[in-house]
Design a protein around this nucleic acid. Structure first.
Lengths: 235, 235
DNA sequence: TGAAAAACATGAATTTTATCATATTTTTGT
DNA sequence: ACAAAAATATGATAAAATTCATGTTTTTCA
């Protein structure tokens, strides 16, 4: 774990609008700021390991993270992503269980570590924050249920199409409609729950069908309605 | 929704040891008791519908419940079960989202409805209860992640073996080692994420391999270590 | 910059799983 | 108790998806 000489300043953990910390009072913000420590992580670094215990949570100040489990045959399964403003590690902390997933950076990332004591203090003293944590957990639980049904019932082609739409929604696109996250074909396979070769084949199918454009790891969704139809989602 | 003339007495919601309500003070128990209403549900009744809003949670006083989503092709996917002492509906309530799943009874069941106001009061006033809710949600989230990895990576045979072990763990066995829940082959398929015929075939395979004994919907696990090996789980 | 490694790509063969068809058994409701 | 419906069972076929093999391109880093 590389550590920069100077801690990175981070207002995300303190008060960013989209983060769970946004409703903190100035006093609470400075309290959290005093106890947290921010670090820089290079691309591909592991932040924490499935099975370990954790003594605080991380807030993403900048960058992108994948959370994954390793299945029985050593294959990675990506469970979710975290980006600027998101927190990771809270599940294990609040359940008092070992980490259910590992976390690794997808690009250069700065993270703030917020110790357990600080988080529990916030939960105990700030009903608004407490309710946000409850809301976050229950929302995630609903999302997980959706994923379960889709994995159980949808064919690979539909799941891949949906994954692309979700990636677009999660990481947004630049001015050229390119999804703002770079994943290998293998990583995409590890979201969809399929073989790398299947992803490669289906991506080039999608390309031939003018649903997407691909350039290396850049993916642009050309025809959203058509891809949505392929994904077989109606919401 | 059949309603008995007399509300069923229910101490589960109030103070049972295994329920999330176990740490309530006598005052809190009587407060909850005053506002809750208990009802009887016949086998196969739907308690609530995916997509609807809910204005409270249900606590299972007696009986067994399946929570399920309906996939795109109308196929049911069982997400989890609830039994005596468990609560259902809290996810939708706390996330302030529509219900992500439907709930239906698997046998005669008595449920207590606890209104939202009462639950929120408990969360706000009882830090212990609040922490239990956080713990419950984050535990469930970890379980969901496990299911996702297994659905994505394991073949049907392994998933069915594991499902049987989980059913045994969840519902326990009687003195004859028979799992204490009666599910149709179709329902088992809707847990495993496979076709009903596949479950039928694999169950008779397991029978031939002396892993289980089957009599109608009664399943007895004869050889736990062997079935665990088939399930490919090591925990 | 150039060699090695990793990632991407594609065809062929195989395995897994689902679907369809059709009995047989069990359950349900009157 | 009996007819109808639902659930279970089983074989044959088809479809979906993986695996393996092999070649090409891209990336990495010494």
């Amino acid at each position: 774990m590389k550590k920069r000489a100077e801690p990175i300043h981070c207002d995300t953990c303190g008060a960013r609008e989209k983060s769970v910390f946004c409703s903190l009072s100035p006093d609470e913000v400075s309290d959290v700021d005093a106890s947290k420590s921010c670090n820089f992580y290079a691309k591909g670094q592991v932040i924490f390991h499935e099975g370990n215990r954790i003594n605080g949570i991380y807030c993403v100040s900048k960058g992108k993270i994948k959370l994954f489990q390793i299945g029985n045959e050593g294959k990675e399964q990506i469970i979710r992503f975290a980006k600027e403003g998101d927190i990771i590690g809270y599940r294990a902390l609040l359940s008092e269980e070992p980490l259910s997933a590992s976390a690794a950076t997808l690009e250069e990332t700065s993270l703030c570590f917020i110790p357990k004591s600080q988080l529990l203090k916030l939960i105990a003293n700030n009903p608004n924050f407490n309710f946000k944590m409850l809301k976050l957990l229950s929302h995630e639980l609903g999302e997980a249920a959706k994923v379960i049904t889709e994995l159980a019932q949808k064919p690979v082609r539909e799941r891949l199409a949906e994954t692309l739409l979700i990636l677009k929604q999660t990481f947004e696109t630049d001015e050229n409609q390119v999804i703002q996250v770079k994943l290998s074909r293998e990583e995409i396979a590890n979201i969809v729950g399929t073989a790398t070769e299947s992803v490669i084949r289906l991506l080039s199918d999608f390309k031939k069908e003018n649903l997407i454009e691909v350039e290396g790891r850049s993916i642009r969704i050309v025809n959203i309605p058509a891809l949505t139809r392929v994904a077989n989602v109606f919401e």
